[in-house]
Design a protein around this nucleic acid. Structure first.
Lengths: 272, 272
DNA sequence: CAGTGGTCTAGACCACGCT
DNA sequence: GCGTGGTCTAGACCACTGT
């Protein structure tokens, strides 16, 4: 039966009651929340209403259901930090040591994980620039590009997927054009250095949204967890204006990663 | 009645069918989707199942329900871009022109909106550093701080909320200590300049999650939209190591904002 | 086996928005 | 007034997990 609605609905009251108890620490990460049947009894509601209450917490990423076992308070894994100064470290190694590939890539160093702990799925193909990528590259749509699709895993968990593009005219016939050499020691910047392109500027745009179904399955994203989406351009040349790489769809589950950026300001008295 | 479950559930099939049609452009942003009753008829399911299908799309931020009217394909407002180089521009004006407040603040300039278009809610109070803020500031917990809570509005829409902290020992007795002068012309960096602190480094950490209930109401966040959370430190001094401001809870609805960062790399041959 | 969450049905009353 | 989404009920069968 229906009923008047001046106060907030029953299911929301129950959800907020549970949320409060989670915040207070009555239920700690990993703990089992009351079952749907227990909530029915306790709050004198039908199962649908009890279930809806738990659905609120699941949609907010606070709780996670396990088939046949119950609903648990989600534990948030300590997030991996991805720092922007990894780019500076990479390019320093190259400028100082020359373009011999250094032994580490920013991906492993940033996380402090060993090579053996991670894995890379890769898929290369030739394609033409679509409108968005052409705009980012500063070329015409249809421009021949090498498309590289990557999925990074660490500790058995997928950490990010990306679509990256290089000008085919730049890489064609070089070791960069094939997937065999990935992961490239020293990473993207070292790779571009072998082509004579010293990256002098990296631009990243960060946004967030809920994941698409294929992202959920590929990255094994729990319900209620958004993704960070990053669009990246790598630029080279003394004027930092030659676009040498574009990655327009870097997708990162937001429950495992924090993006760190440092902006050093020029405070000298001379205009730049 | 229940039934076997080899394929994906009915409600998910219906949801994916609708998602496909949205992606294909059969339903465009702003269009009305079939009503729950229409989906019942069309797919021969109960209302609960039809409703659940639409719930999937709403949870993913693809659709939005309007009471008494129907469920619509969500239009994504063109996102405001917040660029990291706003900091460099702010500090340049100060270094070149001295600490007279320049006429614009980064917030208005970044968006290209007029002063009259935006509004600032502010709430100042003295407090002691909690553990997290103390860690970020590099001081002991309990250190006296000025806490400033802001909510920014633009075009009548709330754009972000933040908790910002300054050392009370630095600002006490100055015009900065009171909310009356906010919004401060020239923004945070100009404000710190009047205290003799030239900001030489800004650090930002970006993450994402689903919003809390109070964030949903304060920022008017539609269901299915995550928030970007930014933690910021402003540092001063030639060694860029004196923390002068900490904002540990900047919350930004992800449907209205993209964060842009540019990292210029030092590619000179001298070690830095 | 008992208990859990996942799915589905059929029916009800409500508040809202438009015509 | 009529159609819409929002809420709630009571009951059912299913698949999965643990003992």
């Amino acid at each position: 039966m229906g009923q008047g609605r001046r106060e907030s609905p029953r299911y929301r009251q129950i959800a907020e009651y549970l949320r409060l108890r989670i915040m207070r620490g009555d239920y700690r990460p990993g703990d089992l929340l009351p079952s749907e049947r227990a909530l029915m009894e306790e709050h004198q509601v039908s199962r649908g209403t009890a279930r809806q209450a738990l659905a609120v917490l699941r949609a907010d990423g606070l709780a996670q259901a396990a088939m046949g076992r119950g609903v648990f308070v989600r534990e948030q894994a300590p997030a991996r930090r991805v720092a922007s100064d990894r780019y500076q470290r990479e390019v320093r190694q190259i400028v100082e040591d020359g373009p011999q590939p250094p032994p580490e890539t920013s991906f492993t160093r940033t996380q402090g994980i060993e090579w053996s702990d991670y894995r890379l799925d890769k898929d290369f193909r030739d394609t033409g620039a679509d409108e968005e990528v052409a705009e980012l590259f500063g070329v015409s749509p249809g421009e021949p590009l090498l498309e590289r699709r990557f999925v990074f895993y660490a500790q058995g968990e997928p950490q990010q997927m990306s679509w990256s593009y290089l000008l085919l005219s730049l890489v064609s016939g070089t070791p960069v054009a094939g997937p065999a050499n990935e992961p490239w020691p020293g990473g993207n910047i070292a790779q571009l250095a072998t082509l004579g392109k010293i990256v002098s500027r990296v631009e990243e745009s960060v946004a967030a949204r809920m994941p698409l179904p294929d992202e959920v399955s590929t990255l094994r994203i729990p319900p209620g967890v958004p993704v960070l989406t990053v669009t990246r351009r790598m630029l080279a040349g003394p004027d930092r204006d030659e676009v040498v790489e574009v990655a327009n769809k870097i997708v990162i589950p937001a429950d495992r990663t924090i993006m760190d950026y440092a902006v050093d300001l020029d405070v000298s008295s001379d205009p730049p």
